[in-house]
Design a binder for these strands. Sequence first.
DNA 1: GTGCATCCTCTAGCGACTAGAGGATCAAGA
DNA 2: TCTTGATCCTCTAGTCGCTAGAGGATGCAC
Lengths: 143, 143
Amino acid sequence: MSDPSFSIGALSRETGVKVPTIRFYESIGLLPAADRTASDRRVYDRKAVQRLAFVRHARDLGFPVEAVRSLLELADHPEQSCADADRLAAEHLAEVRRKIGQLEALRDELARVTAQCARGKVADCRVIEVLSDHSLCLTPDHH
Amino acid sequence: MSDPSFSIGALSRETGVKVPTIRFYESIGLLPAADRTASDRRVYDRKAVQRLAFVRHARDLGFPVEAVRSLLELADHPEQSCADADRLAAEHLAEVRRKIGQLEALRDELARVTAQCARGKVADCRVIEVLSDHSLCLTPDHH
DNA sequence: GTGCATCCTCTAGCGACTAGAGGATCAAGA
DNA sequence: TCTTGATCCTCTAGTCGCTAGAGGATGCAC
């Protein structure tokens, strides 16, 4: 059986998570406190690599740290119902959709405004004009 | 000629910007330091209302504060070329498009994963499984 | 032994606010 | 005139998720 051990740098290379970020995750309790060598350096095993990869993946998918914490907790208890995991993912998905909608409205507004810019003086600038007068917006409810 | 004056609360109601945020904007120099009454309360005029509305609108459109600062500077100099304003808006638009793209990839991944969830035990949970194994992702380059 | 990489802890900074403490002032009603 | 409640003031600290840097100890290859 293989039982390799990793320094924090090796763990970082394995997972693509930066060294200070790993220490940060430990400090907020997202990762358990690592074992230490005699000279106080952190030592990790395969399980730690997997756990951090899980964290990284969840973060890349945009889950907030608190959601990641819950997901880790769930992953540690395979016999439980997965309703919570499903709910977390669904909530996050809804949030992502909401943000996309917002950004699309924003994109349309910006595209319209920049397209109309005649590239003359500021006095005639469509960008500045629209910023000065909200009623010129196509979607006045972007706030 | 009308020359109404506004308290910070009235300015807040006029513009929809919260009182502490107005003070914050002043503290970072985004708004000029307001005139004060004898008892040290801030007093604003119509121009201040317009300026803050401009700031609010630019922020709502997602411009970073530093970009807002530049846009204000431009708005104050109507005889200059509007190339800078146009560039700022175009850069911001590109950034917004990029974010939308990212979020769409994310949304697709989340939608796929949650749709596959059989709502049983965590051990069989698709959400947890995919988080544990990045290679199960449809778009493995979401990071 | 001599570098240089890597590790350690700790503090501070980022962006853009938001919240709260602790106190002063104002305007309206009794 | 007094009181009450809203509004105002400054200041500090907290939010989120890291990132950067100081200042020092250790490990490893030549």
